[in-house]
């Protein structure tokens, strides 16, 4: 069936809007879309979205993570195997993390990483046929925001919720950031790690994130205010 931007779409539908009108402009075909000879076909069920000038993708509900190059994910170290760590990132296979891809790591100075540790890492290799590969440094060798996540609490959620809270327009983080000190790491593989000073605050933060999944922007603001009031002891 022919569909247009903003429609609810199903795999097999096609969209004629997605084609460059003039020769110079290039169209960015995002996740959930596939170019065939004649049209661009939809491969995921969801909503067809567009961002100017020419970016199209499908906003879909998804819980299964498919590793994609360049994304930041949260993984759990499951095995030390010689020069690499095997890390579970929720994909079809475990990912490899070289012990050299940490800030300041050398052959003699190995990073101290134990089985069961949670890490925030970037995917550098993610192809269909190969084991994904992670790094904990950027191209300059700095760790930046990547690395081991100590303490805190990790939970899983649908991948689209991670996208929702990381969207610059989402009011969740803006409403919470002035309420109490906390730290959060959201992996694009549907794992969120949070850390706050007390258990009460951690639970409040976790509830706020998970509660935001089906709420509108104004409702999210309301919920955050509510949670902050309860935490501060104004409401029992």
């Amino acid at each position: 069936m022919k569909v247009s931007v903003g429609d609810v779409v199903l795999p097999g539908d096609y969209c004629e809007e997605i084609s460059p009108k003039d020769e110079k402009s290039r169209v960015v075909i995002g996740p959930g879309l596939r170019k065939e000879v004649d049209h661009v076909y939809i491969t995921k069920a969801g909503i067809l979205k567009k961002k100017n000038p020419h970016t199209y993708w499908i906003d879909s509900y998804q819980k299964r993570y498919v590793p994609i190059r360049g994304e930041n994910v949260i993984g759990i170290v499951t095995q030390k195997a010689g020069d690499i760590f095997r890390v579970d990132i929720g994909g079809s296979t475990t990912a490899a993390l070289s012990f050299l891809s940490f800030e300041g790591a050398t052959k003699k100075n190995r990073p101290e990483l134990q089985v069961g540790d949670i890490i925030y890492a970037k995917l550098v290799i993610a192809s269909k046929d190969m084991e994904p590969e992670l790094v904990c440094v950027d191209s300059f060798g700095h760790k930046g925001r990547l690395g081991v996540l100590n303490d805190g609490f990790m939970f899983k959620c649908p991948i689209n919720l991670v996208r929702k809270i990381l969207n610059p327009k989402c009011p969740l983080l803006d409403s919470l950031k002035n309420e109490w000190p906390f730290e959060m790491a959201a992996g694009m593989n549907g794992r969120i790690w949070i850390k706050a000073n007390s258990m009460r605050e951690s639970i409040a933060l976790g509830n706020a994130i998970l509660g935001a999944e089906f709420l509108s922007d104004s409702d999210i603001k309301k919920m955050c205010n509510n949670i902050a009031a309860i935490l501060a002891g104004h409401v029992s």
Partner: peptide, 13 residues
């Protein structure tokens, strides 16, 4: 004429 971008991170900024 198309750029294929499989990550939401860049599509949704």
């Amino acid at each position: 004429k198309n750029i294929f971008e499989s990550s939401f991170t860049f599509c949704e900024d």
